[in-house]
Design a protein around this nucleic acid. Structure first.
Length: 572
RNA sequence: GGGCCUGUAGCUCAAUUGGUCAGAGCAGGGCGCUCAUAACGCCUUGGUUGGGGGUUCGAGUCCCUCCGGGCCUACCA
């Protein structure tokens, strides 16, 4: 039994995430977690909300709430949606937790002790009317290069020229519109990533089995221009983790907080501590997942994220870990995803374009979305959601291939043999062939799942379902029953066992349907069919069963047309 | 500007280090079946793999170039 640590990139707190966010990290991570649990491995699957930073403060202000209350509310909302999508986190934490405060401060102290922190004096734009420093991109003005009037302080979106906020003509606060700005002197801590460049590079170079997407982004940042740059890890904000050197004050840094990207990945670790606290467990319980000197040497650590998160997970966070000089676990495999687009354009949180997690669940249950999203996961390139494709995939794969199979088997069995499995009959060459074919596909499925080849795994799973229909069609128990009821009975027994095996193997993708299938065959034995011949005999003659409601309903053309309109515009 | 990724049948996607790799699913066409959610099964029509050039006995697979799409470029996260 292996020990597997899985983290999903932690979603930002300022609003409900869209399906593109979901499929890029949390959903595939959940698939992998469920699969490994099903195999009997010891799994720790973690996620959290990423709560600090300017956008959270501004969103709270817009909502007219204190940022602490706003984040608490939004955390609850996101946790509820995670449950709705059946995301099986062992713990869904918060980067604002006291555990993360202490751990983040601890890492900063260790890095300082190691000589990897540098104080840098710099100038930053302060908005007097907003009473706050503004990040470069929160300053708007006219681009000196192209004259675009809505250029941001970090870069002009129109001509793509990189800018300094002081370059802007007629600069104003993006928050209030105020032009009452001034440049103020401030001081920040920088993590000396350059000092760790060679160590990071050697580590990345050793990861030859990572997705190209992952390593190419990491190498770009390592080697582009002047190479890896030092990074500021503090900000002049209210909402964040106060800058401290371990448990000591940090002279000169009063009133400042750590940069959200410094504390967010540390929350992976802190989240595990939160988990232990929630279960009344001692520190040793979470340390055995993270400290190689305290039991984590046999842990394999997998991270899941969208490509925009890759630099922070391949460079910044490892720099924190390596720089601490302490034996914390580094990621062993980093699975990254491209973006999911929506009907010809991008999902857009700001414009409300596309489907958001709450809306999706209002329209259809989680399994429908899980299946489509995972079977179309943007692994090799950006992929696209269209309602036509969604309707076709869901209706064909779920309703016709799988749902109808369960329906035809249970209804036929009930009509001809009553509500328990018939006796008699024996397996012949056709059944032996099915066992062989199914075993081969099952092995392929397991291989794709273990390799996190999400789309290929989905295709293989679908092919497994098809085997059930092919067998039934060839065996034709509805014909055989007229002349040889016992032979037909044996076919029904096998078909019912197939349903159970399909339920178990499909559960990582469609957990609710799997639960319904197991209820239909009245089984609670979820053990993985390592021994397929035995698994196909698990339900014996005389075992009860029930005809379930249809597992999946079909999406009508009218619904599809309605949803196309409903989700095309601005989110109300 | 620079870098990276990507462009394979109408659609969504596969094709170990270049060598039956030109495939699957859906859609389309034909046949069969009737247990089932007008479901299922079988057979089948589609591509000179974005254009052009090159390397090679042999290239979606390597090189050059052009065209199209996307991402990143470090103070949003």
């Amino acid at each position: 039994m292996a020990r597997i640590l899985i983290t999903s990139a932690i979603p930002y707190i300022n609003g409900i995430k869209h399906l593109g966010n979901l499929v890029g990290s949390q959903l595939p991570a959940d698939l992998f977690a469920r699969f490994n649990r099903a195999l009997g491995h010891e799994v720790m699957f973690l996620c959290a909300t990423d709560e600090h930073g300017t956008p959270a403060e501004l969103a709270a202000a817009k909502a007219g709430k204190p940022v602490e209350a706003y984040c608490a509310e939004m955390h609850a909302v996101q946790a509820e949606l995670a449950r709705g999508f059946r995301l099986s986190f062992d713990h869904f934490g918060r980067s604002s937790s006291q555990r993360n405060h202490r751990l983040t401060q601890h890492f900063a102290g260790r890095l300082a002790d190691a000589g990897l922190i540098e104080e840098v004096a710099e100038k930053q734009v302060f908005s007097i009317d907003d009473n706050r420093f503004l990040p470069d991109r929160y300053i708007t003005g006219t681009c000196p290069n192209c004259g675009y009037t809505a250029a941001r302080g970090d870069q002009c979106e129109n001509c793509t020229k990189q800018l300094d906020p002081t370059d802007l003509i007629n600069p104003r606060s993006s928050v209030s519109g105020s032009t009452n700005l001034e440049v103020r002197q401030t001081k920040h801590l920088y993590l000396r990533q350059r000092a760790l460049k060679h160590k990071l590079e050697a580590w990345i170079d050793s990861k030859t089995d990572w997705p190209i997407l992952t390593t190419s982004i990491a190498k770009k940042w390592l080697n582009d221009g002047d190479g890896l740059q030092d990074r500021g890890i503090t900000r002049d904000l209210y909402w964040g983790i106060p800058v401290r050197k371990g448990d000591q004050p940090w002279p000169g840094m009063e009133g400042k907080v750590f940069y959200v990207w410094f504390d967010a990945p540390i929350e992976y670790i802190a989240c595990t501590a939160e988990w232990a606290d929630a279960h009344g467990l001692p520190d040793a319980a979470w340390e055995r997942w993270w400290r190689t000197d305290k039991g984590a040497a046999d842990v394999t650590y997998y991270q899941f994220m969208g490509k925009d998160n890759v630099p922070f997970h391949t460079l910044s966070f490892p720099a924190t870990i390596l720089g601490s000089g302490e034996p914390w676990k580094l990621v062993d495999y980093l699975k990254s995803f491209n973006y999911l687009n929506y009907d010809g354009g991008q999902f857009s949180t700001s414009q409300g374009r596309g489907i958001f997690m709450d809306q999706a669940l209002e329209v259809l249950p989680a399994d429908y979305w899980r299946w489509w999203l995972l079977s179309h996961a943007p692994e090799s390139s950006d992929s696209e959601f269209t309602w036509e494709n969604f309707q076709a995939s869901v209706n064909k794969d779920l309703a016709d291939v799988l749902g109808n199979l369960v329906s035809r088997v249970t209804k036929f069995a009930l009509a001809k043999f009553g509500d328990s499995l018939p006796e008699g009959g024996s397996a012949g060459p056709r059944e032996a062939q099915l066992e062989t074919d199914l075993a081969a596909r099952l092995r392929a499925y397991e291989g794709f799942m273990a390799a996190m080849e999400v789309r290929k795994a989905a295709a293989e799973l679908r092919a497994i379902w098809v085997l059930g229909n092919e067998y039934l069609q060839a065996a034709a128990p509805w014909t055989v029953v007229k002349t040889d009821p016992e032979a037909a009975g044996a076919m029904v027994r096998l078909a019912m066992n197939l349903i159970r095996v399909f339920a178990i193997t499909s559960a990582p993708f469609i957990p609710d349907a799997s639960t319904a299938m197991m209820a239909a065959v009245k089984s609670d034995d979820w053990s993985w069919p390592h021994d397929l011949p035995a698994a196909l005999r698990a339900l014996p003659a005389g075992h009860g069963f029930a005809v379930p409601d249809n597992l999946f309903r079909k999406i009508t053309d009218e619904e599809r047309a309605d949803w196309q309109v409903r989700f095309s515009g601005i989110r109300s």
